[in-house]
Amino acid sequence: MTTVERAVGGPAPVEVQRSFPPPWLRRGGSWLLNIYAVLGLVYLFIPIFVIVAFSFNAEETKFNFTWDGFTFDNWAHPFAEQGLVDAFVLSLEIAAIATAVAVVLGGLVALALTRYRFRGSALVNLFLVLPLTTPEIVLGASLASLFIAKTYPSPVPDSRGFLAILIAHVMFCVSFVALTVKARLRGFDWTLEDAAMDLGAGPVRTFTKVTLPLMLPGIMAAALLSFALSLDDFIITLFNSGDQTTFPIYIYGAAQRAIPPQIQVLSSMILIVSVGILATGTFVGRRRERAATS
């Protein structure tokens, strides 16, 4: 349907329809609002500039807070700090596994919530939101008291560690994945499944050939989100890490001891990779749109 509309309405039908904001606003003082919004974006990027700049800092003090001169040394040796590299690899591992599990569990929940009408779906919706509306510190403390419950209240020995972090990350990622995929599936035309069935496809084939491909954009978005959330999570992880050091926990420790500039270098790398993913996504989306219109 979108294809037909585009073909009829030209390349940008949305712009033609849109008479809001009204010409009055567009011509008049509206540039003030635009400038305000641009300033907001600049504000978002101020610390990012600082991070990238200080990755080139020839650090002389223990803390990377003052500018001591320009150098490429940090970028030439991004993996000089073994502890940092180990922590980073551990974070990537956890993020990858947690995302994989959360995408399956959360995707199924989203499918159930959008595909069927059933008793208790409102309750499930509310339940999904609860972990997101609970302060992280409460989630962290409660999970930690689960993992030390056997020996509670003695602090040793406990079962906090790699598996505990993984379980915690899957827990909050499931909610995010389910809600993201659900939002994408709203308004989905489920008769397409019936059509596939009518044409002789079995339930499995229908799922893999029709339902899954249509769910895929939502799943991809959810996977990216949950990977980023897992990679970035600090508070819940701190409570459940045991002897494990993830990337954020390493940085937390470094903030108290000494901050090697490699932290800024690795952060800049993450930034570059994510901008790359964003740019690719936009580019591919554009091309697909263009292909659909031509």
């Binding site: 959360g106 199924l108 595909r115 009408r117 409660s142 499931v174």
Partner: peptide, 29 residues
Amino acid sequence: TAPKRGRFAPYGLLSPGIIWLILFFLVPV
């Protein structure tokens, strides 16, 4: 295009994720 009525299927799809949330969100709390 309205969602289908389901008897058991939705609960089956829900259960892994929801059980995870119950075990690692509700129980800890």
